[in-house]
């Protein structure tokens, strides 16, 4: 009945019935970036995202949890570039960076995007597929005042950075999905 009462226009898409989210099947390896795959473990919804090499997954919706894939971030480029922002709005990745610098890069990027009290902790070595990488935890307060926790895994090769970043509401959602995310991280491998 409600369909008869009003027409819904997807304004910015210009058409109705546009599908913004695509299913990520749990049991098929999913490509991330040009060279890597992961095993999703569970069903996710994927949406395009304007990062350097953008892709973004969610389980319950973007306001509740997000898994970002920043792959092949080149030296001299930022991890995230938002439409309409100045070129140097975000900090750049540098080839000379070590793990501690990359951790700061993520912290500063998150801060520049409007999060408060961003803090990265517990930096530790981790396997990024066959490569030696590192992992750290995050906590922050989002713009709307929601406390958020995160997990990041990254590795560097030549002049490029690969990083996966999971963020979720501290209340319930982070602990709920963390085991799955850790398995996704552990499944990173070259295609």
């Amino acid at each position: 009945m409600w369909k008869r009462c009003f027409t819904v226009l997807c304004v910015t898409f210009g058409l109705s019935g546009c599908a913004a989210y695509v299913l990520v099947e749990p049991d098929q390896p999913a490509a991330i970036g040009a060279e890597l795959v992961v095993d999703p473990q569970v069903s996710w919804a994927r949406v395009a995202y304007p990062t350097t090499n953008g892709s973004l997954w969610t389980i319950d919706g973007l306001g509740l949890n997000q898994l970002y894939f920043f792959t092949e971030v080149e030296a001299g480029k930022p991890m995230v570039r938002i439409q309409g922002q100045a070129k140097d709005a975000m900090p750049f990745y540098e080839e000379s960076m070590i793990a501690t610098d990359v951790m700061e890069l993520v912290e500063t990027t998150l801060t520049r995007l409007g999060n408060q009290q961003v803090e990265a902790t517990n930096l530790r070595p981790a396997k990024f597929g066959p490569r030696n990488g590192f992992q750290f935890d995050l906590t922050m307060t989002s713009q709307g005042g929601l406390i958020v926790k995160g997990l990041c895994i990254a590795a560097q090769r030549d002049d490029e950075l690969d990083a996966l970043l999971f963020l979720a509401a501290e209340e319930y959602y982070y602990e709920l999905h963390r085991p799955v995310v850790e398995k996704v991280f552990a499944s990173i491998r070259p295609e």
Binding site: F6, V8, L9, V11, L62, Q66, L110, N115
Partner: peptide, 17 residues
Amino acid sequence: MMLVRPRIAALVVLVAL
């Protein structure tokens, strides 16, 4: 949520009654 700055004036859905 955390990585994206909201555009205050952006619209999502226009519902014509």
